[in-house]
Structure formats: structure tokens, C-alpha cells
């Protein structure tokens, strides 16, 4: 009994001691916990050594260096990003998250850090017409809660939309023949799937999707609504890596084209 008491008192005091510590970490010092995904190549994935790599990760590190912040990258599933952010488990999301009106109701976004359209991916020589009627009754894979999920759900109401937690799993089931097609970010598909051995025999089909109603104005960094300071710092950091050449260096590491879509006026079709 006495022991139990001791344990309870110990637990209670450690809780009391922990709380102000946690507050301090969030307040004054520039400690930023960043949510990343780790299963969305080439933007975010695990290397063979289990280390996080990819465009998002490099951008995150570059921005942190620019802001002189002490950042921790926390890997988690995409559908848990906004809840974690709101629950203060992370302070920013750098996970190729598109800036959309819907998300803006719950979180604040930085300026975009890249912008790419969505595409439909199917078997080479697929005769499916990428329209609501053409895909009627077909199984279309998407990653849950992504803009592609929203877009496909709204655009192909007669199709069966199959939702996955990870983009990698969507491609696995496409190869397995459980899906007739996939709606996905064009670059994630090109680099993360079509250029890999597994993506042999698959290709883009139909037009590029970039209706700003679903696809927003590019991918941004999500922060809590109250954290406007952090947003402004991130914006400044994005601007400076854009001008000082760091961004270009990172971009060239992964892509042979302009992933920022500088020429595209935000919100308009390219």
C-alpha cells in the first residue's frame, strides 16, 4: 500500500514537473516538431538504412537551417497529420499537403513550396475513358484524405473509390490488379511508381487535374491557426531558399523539371 502511494505521488509530481517544461518547449525557444510522412516517394520516404529521405525532408531541413530552429522530424500517417497538429503533438506539417479551402478552415498554411497536378494512372493501353461515365463501376484507388481522394470522390461518383492509408499501398493494389486505376499526384506517380520496376506497364491516362477547387494552389506547410509567427518565419525561409539557390539544389536532386511551377499564377490552370 505504502509503495502504491509512493508511486502515485511520484507520478503526480513528475506530471506537474513535466507540464511547464512542455509549455516552454512550445513557447519561447525555436523548437519545432515537424510531421512528415515517409511513404510518399520521391517527396518523403525511407532509405534502405531506415532514414527519412526525399524532397519534403530536404526542404524541411533547409527551412529549419534557414530559421536557425531546432527541428525534430516525426513520421506519421497522412490522415493523422491535421489531428496531430491540432492536438499539439507536432507544430508543422511538411508532407506535400496541398493548400485547400477545406483544410484552411482547420489550419493555417504557409505559401506554397511546390505545385504539381494530379493524374490518373492505369495499365498501358487501358481503354478506360477518364470521365465519370467512363469510370462508372470501376475501382479507383486513392490515398485517404488527400486532395486526390476528395477530387475522385466528387468527380467519379459512379466509381468505387477505394481508400488507403499509404500511397505505396495504392500502387501495390494497382499492380495486384485489385484496382482499375489510381488518382494520384503526377510527380509522386512518375518518380515513385512509373520509373520504378514495379511501375512497368503502367502509364498516365487522361488529362492533368488541377481544378483549384480540389487541388488548391500548391503544397504548403500547415501550422496551427494561432501560430502566425511560425507561418511568417516559414514564409520568409521559403522565400530565402528560393532566392539563395538552396531550393534549386534540392529540386535538381530529385526532379529534372521546375517543381515549384513559378510561371503558374496561383489558383489558375497551368
Amino acid at each position: 500500500m505504502k509503495n502504491l502511494f509512493r508511486i502515485i505521488i511520484f507520478a503526480a509530481t513528475s506530471l506537474v514537473l513535466l507540464v511547464p517544461h512542455a509549455c516552454a518547449a512550445q513557447g519561447g525557444e525555436k523548437k519545432i516538431r515537424i510531421g512528415v510522412e515517409g511513404a510518399y516517394p520521391p517527396f518523403s520516404y525511407m532509405g534502405v538504412d531506415g532514414k527519412l529521405m526525399g524532397f519534403d525532408i530536404d526542404i524541411a531541413n533547409a527551412l529549419c537551417k534557414e530559421m536557425k530552429a531546432d527541428c525534430t522530424l516525426l513520421q506519421q500517417d497522412f490522415d493523422g497529420m491535421i489531428p496531430s497538429l491540432l492536438a499539439r503533438k507536432i507544430d508543422a506539417v511538411i508532407a506535400s499537403m496541398s493548400i485547400t479551402e477545406e483544410r484552411k478552415r482547420s489550419v493555417e498554411f504557409s505559401d506554397k513550396y511546390y505545385q504539381t497536378p494530379g493524374r490518373f494512372v492505369a495499365k498501358v493501353g487501358s481503354t478506360l475513358e477518364v470521365t465519370a461515365a467512363g469510370l462508372s463501376g470501376k475501382r479507383i484507388g486513392v490515398q485517404r484524405t488527400t486532395i486526390h481522394d476528395r477530387f475522385a470522390t466528387a468527380t467519379f461518383p459512379k466509381s468505387e473509390i477505394v481508400r488507403y492509408t499509404k500511397q505505396d499501398d495504392v500502387f501495390l493494389d494497382l499492380i495486384a490488379g485489385r484496382l482499375d486505376g489510381v488518382v494520384v499526384d503526377s510527380v509522386a506517380a512518375a518518380q515513385g511508381f512509373l520509373k520504378t520496376p514495379g511501375g512497368k506497364g503502367y502509364a498516365f491516362s487522361g488529362p492533368a487535374f488541377n481544378d483549384p477547387k480540389f487541388f488548391g494552389v500548391g503544397a504548403g506547410i500547415a501550422v496551427r491557426k494561432a501560430d502566425t509567427d511560425l507561418r511568417d518565419q516559414l514564409n520568409a525561409a521559403i522565400k530565402s531558399i528560393r532566392t539563395n539557390g538552396v531550393y534549386k539544389k534540392i529540386q535538381d536532386k530529385y526532379f529534372d523539371f521546375d517543381v515549384y511551377a513559378e510561371s503558374a499564377p496561383s489558383g489558375k490552370k497551368k
Binding site: D79, P83, R144, T145, D149, R163, T165
Partner: peptide
């Protein structure tokens, strides 16, 4: 999960 993804709740 579906509801969470729709409402972030």
C-alpha cells in the same frame, strides 16, 4: 477513420 478524415475530429 473516414469520419476523422472528413471532419478532422
Amino acid at each position: 477513420r473516414e469520419m476523422n478524415s472528413r471532419f478532422y475530429l
